[in-house]
Design a protein around this nucleic acid. Structure first.
Lengths: 343, 343
DNA sequence: AATTAAATTTGAACCGTTTCAATCAATATA
DNA sequence: TATATTGATTGAAACGGTTCAAATTTAATT
């Protein structure tokens, strides 16, 4: 069962394929009656001219980049996309976003498609759940397909723009320690998301640089959504043995932190007097919540903008460029969900 | 300044282009030393094999659809994308999202790219700011490129899946009227977004079906973000002459409604005793806010799923299909930001 | 060294369009 | 009526890869 081609249309219409082509492209030279006939046969045969073949001969100015994210409904990636888009649009590039949903197969499939479709380059937030798979990245390098990673991938020499998540969490923990907190726990993010992993790592490192002693039960596996924070919060703080106040929780992200606050309100536990809370991302809701959320502000939009900048620079470069690594710093924003421990 | 092609590489490496092709595709038949040589020349010449040309001959299973949205950072489109993605992934399709940012030129450019890249079809949330431009949609029809619209576009006979926004707002207004409200205003959305326009239209129609009398100053132009609701709220209710309580506000969307609530809290105006508020979308935050937001729940994810279903059905259909129109109904969710007017 | 088998490489056809100089048809002009 | 002009159509050559049967080279066997 072959697809119908321009030849089929031409034959059926009793004209040459050059004429059909002229109709497709709206050339004014073709006679009205011919055009009508060809058009109706195109419709009848459900003819879809193959874009790939068309672009082979004609010169089609095509400025397009990909943005391969991990999750669609994570505000982190929304901000990121906004940053990418702003820079890209200024430079006349169209961006196509696709999500791997943290599945490696998907990531691979998407990169293949980007290459197949002759997208000019892509930004990738790589899936990194335990085992690192990098074959597809090597492939991109072999094909000289420009890309920039939003995270360092072991074994791959490539452009990376990332946020210093480890340091960010360390700042948060240090802040709490300085406030006199002795009991600090972490509501951690989805395992597959590697910035979640980094935040976890930062949490551990912070302990080793403080008088506190780390133990694995300080990590409460949570997730990335409001209901994760809410449910895990109800679950954890619903148990009497966990209510050793005052204490503090560093959350994977703001949405989880807000969910946790709701949980604590339902349980009549005071924020911040009983439990201090620190979020991560500084989404718009964070500052408007009551109490306003203390959080770590990661320059996400900036991250996107920088990534786009490097990518587009690579795409348009004549010569081969040196690989570039860029690390953006996060910042602690102190609001109302943290307070000092009373002596 | 020509691009380097497979011929350049072949010549430089002293092999035939068939061999270079074999290297590109990782065929195991090529001798290791040859592979190395070719590879290094590919790198030296910065050779990027043209995907379009590659796919001409080989058979590459390519299941991809586009999703053309209006705004990146609008939760409406995030939910929509999730719905589309769920259905698409089940059927092995990859979705590429791109945003027009409500600019017509962009919309046109994106559709052109989708066609050029041989994406198999697309879902479109058309920009509709006043003047309707439909040339690009006609073009899609001519090329038999499958698409489904998320809104009826006058003059275009196409698949449409939409939400009955008009009726949704009418339900909201009727509910308020039944509660005894006499003064009901509308914080309207961005002018370019046509569902914002529909909601406005529903608001007007609701008046004509009630004892109330419509007047244009009941419409407060606002926007779609939290800060829009917040700032407009402070602005409007900061003025003494607008404080005719009790009254009610129907908001363009939830985020605006939540912003408005924050504004009222700052102004020490009670919700819902002084001002009843109704949102739109039923985002996750709505139910968790305090007070929990009364809102209109639009089946957004369902909208996306249905659109994807129809699109993919069209893509895979052998014969030409009849155009399909589907309207999904919204539902009023009563929570804590609305109350009856005391006699 | 001759023969056979296995490993590499290659020439030429092909994929489905666009392009454009050349041709053919229709109309206007002398 | 012959000729020039304009309008429509077309044939054949690209475009930049992939494919695969056939040719060539290298290694193994007798």
């Amino acid at each position: 069962m072959k697809k119908t081609t321009i030849n089929d249309v031409a034959e059926r219409a009793g004209v040459s394929k050059a004429t059909v082509s002229a109709v497709i492209n709206g050339k004014p030279t073709v006679k009205a009656s011919t055009r009508e006939r060809v058009l109706s046969i195109m419709k009848e045969l459900n003819f879809r001219p193959k874009g790939q073949a068309r672009n082979l001969k004609r010169t089609f100015i095509d400025k397009s980049i990909g943005l391969l994210i991990r999750e669609l409904d994570n505000p982190f990636y929304t901000s990121l996309a906004v940053g990418v888009k702003k820079y890209a649009n200024q430079h006349n590039y169209t961006v196509f976003i696709s999500s791997s949903e943290c599945n490696h197969q998907n990531e691979e499939k998407i990169t293949k498609l980007l290459v197949a479709k002759d997208i000019k380059g892509t930004i990738i937030a790589p899936v990194m759940n335990g085992t690192v798979e990098i074959d597809h990245l090597f492939r991109l390098k072999m094909l000289n397909f420009p890309f920039v990673l939003l995270e360092e991938v072991p074994g791959i020499q490539a452009n990376v723009v990332s946020i210093n998540n480890i340091d960010a969490i360390k700042k948060a923990v240090k802040f709490l320690v300085d406030l006199g907190h002795k009991r600090i726990i972490h509501f951690s993010g989805p395992e597959y998301a590697s910035h979640a992993y980094e935040r976890l790592k930062g949490f551990r490192q912070a302990f080793s640089e403080s008088p506190l002693i780390y133990s694995d039960d300080l990590i409460i596996p949570c997730g990335s959504h409001f209901h994760d924070g809410l449910n895990k919060g109800l679950d954890y703080f619903g148990k009497k043995e966990n209510q050793k106040f005052p204490m503090a929780v560093v959350c994977y992200n703001d949405v989880v932190a807000l969910g946790l606050i709701s949980a604590l309100q339902k349980l009549n536990i005071r924020v911040p007097e009983d439990v201090s809370i620190i979020g991560n991302d500084d989404i718009e809701f964070a500052r408007h919540w009551s109490p306003a959320l203390t959080t770590i502000s990661t320059p996400i939009e900036e991250l996107g903008r920088k990534a786009a900048e490097i990518l587009i620079h690579n795409i348009e470069a004549k010569e081969r460029l040196k690989v570039k690594k860029l690390v953006l710093e996060a910042q602690l924003i102190i609001r109302e969900t943290t307070c000092a421990v009373k002596k």
